[in-house]
Computed example of a mutant assay.
Amino acid sequence: MPKANVTIVGLGFVGSSMGLALKKSGADISIIGHDKEPEVAREALKMKAVDRTDWNLISACEKADIVILALPFQEMRETMKAVGPYLKPGCLVTDTAIPKRPVMKWAEEFLPEHVSFVGGNPIISPQGEAAGVKAASAEVLKGATYCLTPSPQASGEAVELTVALVKAMGANPYFLDPAEHDGLLAGIEQLPIIAAAALMGTLSQSPPWRDMRRLGGSAFSQGTASLWESRTFWAQPFLENADNLIRWVDQLIYQLETLKRGLQEQDEEVLSTYFGRAIAERERWYKDKTFGQWEEVPEPPRPPGMLETFLGIRLRKPKE
C-alpha cells in the first residue's frame, strides 16, 4: 500500500509541531508542507517537520489524503474556498482555528460533498520566549488535549482517522459540539487575552506609567504574558465569538466589583476567602493539567486495524 499523503497548510508553531509529532510517531506517511512565507517553509523543511514543501497551495493539496489547515482564523475561509474544488474524493480536512462555529459553516459552504471535515483545536502553546516555526516541538503535543468537532456530514471513517491522527501526535482527542467549544474557549482562551489587554491599557495609559514600567516584576509579566503569545492580534476571532465573550466579560466585571467592594469596606475576611478560593482552584487546575487528570470522555469506537492500515503504525492497547 502506498504511503498516505498528509499536507500541512501553515507551517508556523502549530503546523510544524504537528509535523514533528507525526514524524516522531513513526507513521508511514509522506508530509507535504505549504506556507505563504518562503522563509517559514524553508525553516520547517530544515527542522524536518515536513518531507518536502510546495509553494503552490493547490498543488500541495490536490493529491492529499489528509489536509491539515494549521492557519490563523482570518485565513481559513479563503483557503477553504481556494482548495475545495481540487480535493480528491475521500479526503479528510481538519483545521486548528478558533472559534469553530464559523469554520464549520465555511467547511459546509466551500468543501465538496466527497470530502469530510473534522474541526480541530490542539490546546498547546510555545515553551519559552521563542515564537512561530522556531518554537515548534513535537513535545508540546504530548498529552495535550485536542478538541475535535466533526461536521455532521463527516463519514465515520473520517472521524476515526482524525482520532488516529491525534493519537499518533501523542495528544488526547476530546469531542465537543462547536457551540460548546466556542463558549468554553471564550472563557479559558480569549477572556485572559482581553483581561491582559485591559490591564496593559489601564497601566500604560495612566500618567505614572513612565516611572511605573521600571517596577514591573513577575506579577505584571505573568499577568500580561498572553499578549506576548498573541502579539499578532486579529480582531476577527473575537468578533465572531462576541456573544460568548460578552457573557464572560460581564462575569469578569462582576468579580472585579466583588473585589472592589471588599477593598472599599476594608473587609479582610471577604478578600482572604476570595483569594484563598482562587489560589486553590488555580493549584488544582495546574495539577490536573500537569498530570492529565481530566475526566475521560468516551470516544466513538475505532474499527480494528484502520489506524495500522492507513498510517502504518500500531498503538499499544491499554492494559486491562
Rank of each mutant, 00 (worst) to 15 (best):
L185E: 00
R52H: 11
K142L: 05
H114R: 10
K142C: 14
A171F: 12
A60C: 00
L45F: 07
I58T: 13
I124E: 00
A179H: 11
A186Q: 01
L57M: 10
S59K: 00
A138K: 08
E113R: 11
V140F: 07
L69T: 09
E43C: 04
V83H: 09
V163I: 15
N121R: 13
L87T: 01
M47H: 09
E160P: 08
T79Y: 10
R101P: 04
W106F: 15
E157D: 14
I124C: 01
A164R: 01
L165S: 02
A44G: 03
I123S: 07
P99S: 09
G183S: 05
D95N: 15
C61T: 02
V115C: 07
T94H: 14
E189A: 15
A168Q: 01
V103D: 00
T53A: 11
V159C: 07
M104C: 12
K167L: 10
L111P: 05
A154W: 04
C147K: 02
R42L: 11
K134L: 07
K142T: 13
A179Y: 03
C61F: 05
H114N: 11
L165W: 00
K48M: 10
K100I: 04
G90C: 08
A154D: 12
K142H: 13
D177G: 12
P152L: 13
V67H: 01
K63I: 07
E189R: 12
R42T: 11
M80V: 07
K63T: 08
D65W: 09
D95Y: 10
